[in-house]
């Protein structure tokens, strides 16, 4: 399956991935509007962690046996066995945060506005994940995982 892989040796902590993730999941899809009007409502689904010079971005890893899917009591989280993609249906999510409780990378955030979980959806709507497309140093890349 395709996974977004973070290369920490090239992550430079610019955090543009967070910026573009937020925009990609905004209503307006416009940088300035998203930040001016929707910041606070929506959260980026990717987080850059930094310790000294080292940093890297974390988002949903689309685990092979996703703990979040097992823990999800509504069935909102689902792993597509064909693509390996872990999807989240906000319509079915009630914001119980069981997924937040079990995600080992801490990649599921609480959408403050909708009171539902927010996680990386690989930007399937647009084709290329915004974080990957906009990472200036290719520290985020899509790699085909043959497992």
């Amino acid at each position: 399956m395709k996974r977004i892989v973070a290369k920490e040796e090239y992550c430079m902590n610019c955090r543009l991935c967070e910026v573009y993730c937020l925009v990609s999941h905004s209503r307006s899809k416009d940088l300035i509007k998203a930040f001016r009007q929707e910041r606070g409502e929506i959260v980026p689904r990717i987080t850059v962690e930094r310790l000294g010079p080292v940093s890297f971005a974390v988002q949903c890893r689309h685990c092979d046996e996703p703990a979040c899917v097992e823990a999800c009591m509504t069935g909102a989280l689902h792993r597509d066995p064909a693509t390996g993609e872990v999807t989240h249906d906000p319509q079915r999510c009630v914001g119980c945060w069981m997924c937040v409780m079990v995600c080992p990378t801490g990649a599921i955030r609480r959408d403050r506005n909708g009171h539902v979980a927010a996680k990386c959806d690989l930007c399937l709507e647009t084709g290329t994940p915004a974080c990957v497309a906009n990472c200036p140093n290719e520290a985020l890349v899509i790699e085909e995982d043959n497992d």
């Binding site: 937040v100 409780m101 079990v102 990378t105 599921i108 609480r110």
Partner: peptide
């Protein structure tokens, strides 16, 4: 409670 799962992972 954000990122609680990381801690759960450390226990597991």
């Amino acid at each position: 409670v954000d990122r609680a799962g990381i801690i759960t992972g450390l226990i597991k």
